[in-house]
């Protein structure tokens, strides 16, 4: 993805020390700095996953959630933890922590996710004990191993940024970012995510095995990372991320032609002979901020054809229902993109 050294000039001036506040983010340069800092930290913690890191940053800055599909032990949790580490909670007074991890199992109950009302014998009153989703970053591990009931509890939280427990609706944090993982191998004893649930995720990222060089680096640096978990690198605050989202939405231009292109792509997926169900309008709605975030990450103030080309398979891939015997998902999406994108790319 983007070469970090060219990403911005903002980073040079913000010689952050950990826990020190940077100037408020008001323009795209600031956003770029935020993205750069996140990238630096994550790349330091997670080797060989630069592409995934970039996508996670984009999702974070465009208020979407990501679903990682990979084998166990391939760095999903490491990535989520690194992300949690990179974010400073600059509102320590509320009950919301930076990162929570939920390990989904078949016997998990919704209240284990959302929190439950507990009787306090000292005060003789019930009080709400928030569940793990009351966090900035929620790592939902092996999400397809739990029951649909629990999955749907998470669904409401992801879509509405609120959760209902005992008929009382409680708001979640604005920066509520779910990194869910699912295991492609263990099909036995899993509850595949329904398409409605999948629709809540902005990206579904299939992670591949990292390359040899990165793997060697990981093995060589186990000790070093244990001793200094990259704390010397600057972090970002919750406010900075929220500000960045607002700035990106406001300042990155989405041309009418790009919107037309998106609609055309959607129509192509709906008309494609190998597709049973095309992409939803919500997918397009969710995609716009993602495109903006990527354009920003690439150092542009407008959304270009390349953004659409890069993100379309990730956004649309898990939303399409393919007919039996169809080609690979990515191939179908690429076919649907080719013609609408041509309108943007023509000289």
């Amino acid at each position: 993805m983007t070469d970090p050294s060219t990403a911005d000039s903002d980073f040079q001036q913000s010689e952050h020390i950990t826990h020190t506040l940077a100037p408020p983010v008001t323009d795209l340069n600031g956003c770029s700095g935020v993205a750069h800092r996140l990238r630096q930290r994550l790349q330091a913690m997670v080797r060989g996953r630069n592409d995934v890191i970039e996508l996670v940053i984009i999702a974070l800055l465009s208020d979407g959630h990501v679903l990682l599909e990979d084998y166990p032990g391939s760095g999903k949790t490491t990535l989520a933890k690194a992300l949690g580490d990179a974010i400073i909670d600059d509102r320590p007074d509320d009950d919301i922590v930076t990162i929570r991890r939920i390990q989904f199992t078949p016997d998990l109950l919704p209240s284990d996710v959302t929190g439950s009302t507990i009787f306090d014998p000292n005060t003789n009153r019930f009080f709400f004990r928030p569940g793990p989703i009351f966090a900035h970053i929620v790592l939902a591990d092996e999400i397809n191993r739990t029951t649909p009931k629990v999955q749907s509890a998470l669904l409401e939280a992801m879509a509405e940024k609120q959760t209902t427990c005992d008929n009382r609706t409680r708001k979640l944090d604005d920066l509520f970012f779910v990194v869910a993982t699912q295991n492609p191998l263990d099909l036995a004893g899993t509850f595949p995510l329904p398409s409605a649930q999948l629709d809540r995720f902005l990206f579904k990222i299939k992670m591949r095995h990292i390359d040899r060089q990165s793997e060697l680096e990981i093995l060589a640096s186990i000790r070093a990372r244990k001793e200094s978990p990259g704390d010397e690198l600057p972090r970002v605050t919750r406010t900075e991320i929220l500000d960045s989202r607002a700035v990106i939405e406001q300042h990155v231009h989405v041309d009418a032609r790009v919107r037309e292109c998106l609609v055309d792509i959607a129509n192509h997926t709906r008309a494609h002979p190998q597709v049973l169900q095309g992409v939803s309008t919500r997918a397009l709605v969710l995609m716009i901020p993602a495109l903006q975030a990527r354009a920003m990450a690439q150092g542009r103030n407008y959304v270009g054809a390349d953004d659409v080309w890069a993100l379309a398979p990730l956004v649309f891939g898990h939303r399409l229902a393919l007919a039996p015997g169809a080609e690979a998902m990515e191939e179908v999406v690429r076919q649907c993109c080719a013609q609408p994108l041509e309108a943007l790319s023509r000289a």
Binding site: G304, D306, W309, S345, A347
Partner: peptide, 25 residues
């Protein structure tokens, strides 16, 4: 101007393929 640039490239045998974005080309 961009068209002129592409003409020059086509003369030396490089042209954008169908489905390629400007950036990838």
């Amino acid at each position: 101007a961009y068209r002129r640039a592409l003409d020059q490239l086509a003369e030396v045998g490089i042209a954008r393929q169908l489905g390629e974005t400007r950036t990838s080309f």
